[in-house]
Amino acid sequence: MNTCAQTLMPSLPVQAPAPAAAVRHLPGDLAIWVFIFAELLVFGVFFITYAFARSNNVELFNAEQLALDRTSGAVNTVLLLTSSFLVVRAVQFAQAGESRRAAPWLAGAFACGGGFVVVKLFEYAEKIAAGVSLSSSTFHMFYLSLTFFHFMHVILGMVILVAMWNGARNGRYGPDNMNGIETGAAYWHMVDLVWLILFPLIYVMR
């Protein structure tokens, strides 16, 4: 039988392995990606609901949006983007087999997350002092609930960053053990990604 096959296909080439760069690989754990897409779906529904609620009351939304602090929103965007960059650098160090050198980058990312929390708390304090609450108006109900929902994700992301930092400090990550750091990084980037739509939608779009 083998001889027959060899006779029929005498010059069939042995398939060479795919070049390294061509191998497609989903970073991190599959479960985190399922979780990330579930989160994106929820945030997406909130964003679209906000946009259609606004379409029914454009003047109110535009008037109340003017009172938001766009500068603190932009500062928070910069903080999240910078923390995402620092996480990418940490992952690159882990990939290069330099797990311990990844730790300070993760600490920097955590500090940026902390900066986001502080700016957001000042923003909330200012709003609460001005008498804003969930029941003030439809706009404020959306503003507070959407930004607070995102805020809770930042807090969870910071807890994950601490776990990643601890792993990096103990030399846990390397080219053969990237799952943990890639999984945490994917979650943190999702928190950033969602904010990139939330900021123009709630703070700027008029």
Binding site: A20, A21, A22, Q95, A96, P175
Partner: peptide, 10 residues
């Protein structure tokens, strides 16, 4: 390690 497929992804 930087020439492995996983290294190239980042």
């Amino acid at each position: 390690s930087l020439s492995s497929p996983r290294a190239s992804s980042h």
